[in-house]
């Protein structure tokens, strides 16, 4: 008789664990996906347009690395480069440490950190490379990659339009 009541108790515990897992999963999904205030990353013009309001927050911005903009000091491990949205909105990024291997000019990046209140500089604590969906074998004649594909996935519109943003069209 004791054994069956023990079994019942451990079964309810498992049920509670199961339900809580499901509930937290649903809540997490609702919070990250449905909330119109949650943006995974801003484009440079969106971030600059709202820089004054965003400056105290930890945000992510995505952009394309401008050729020749990279400065790297191997002794202090300080990296600096400029990102653009290809529509003349540029942000100077500062980061401590070496970048990921795929970092290079013309590459997409997603930076996480704080933007200056004037929107001109960004102190990044995380530097991620956002590459395109292409897979091509190397050929002698140079890159086979299509720059437009990367541009599209970096600068596409947010699904929930933010009325205060500069409003870049995809």
């Amino acid at each position: 008789m004791n054994l069956s009541s023990k079994k019942k108790r451990s079964k309810s515990t498992k049920w509670l664990v199961g339900i809580s897992l499901i509930a937290s999963a649903v809540i997490a999904m609702a919070m990250t996906q449905i909330s119109s205030n949650t943006v995974y990353f801003y484009t440079p013009d969106e971030a600059q347009a709202q820089a004054a309001a965003l400056t105290s927050q930890n945000i992510k911005v995505a952009g394309m690395v401008i050729a020749g903009s990279r400065e790297w000091d191997a002794t202090t491990l300080k990296l600096a480069f400029t990102i653009t949205d290809l529509k003349n909105h540029e942000i100077r990024v500062k980061y401590n440490g070496p970048p990921p291997d795929m970092f290079k000019e013309g590459q997409g990046v997603v930076i996480e950190g704080k933007i200056s209140s004037d929107g001109q500089t960004f102190a990044a604590k995380t530097l991620m490379v956002k590459h395109s969906e292409e897979y091509k074998k190397p050929t002698a004649g140079g890159s086979n990659m299509n720059k437009e594909l990367l541009e599209k996935s970096l600068f596409k519109d947010q699904p929930v339009t933010n009325p205060s943003s500069g409003g870049s069209t995809p």
């Binding site: 790297w72 000091d73 191997a74 002794t75 070496p98 970048p99 291997d101």
Partner: peptide, 9 residues
């Protein structure tokens, strides 16, 4: 100009 670290294995 300083060079970046070698590529990851």
């Amino acid at each position: 100009m300083n060079s970046l670290p070698d590529a990851t294995n």
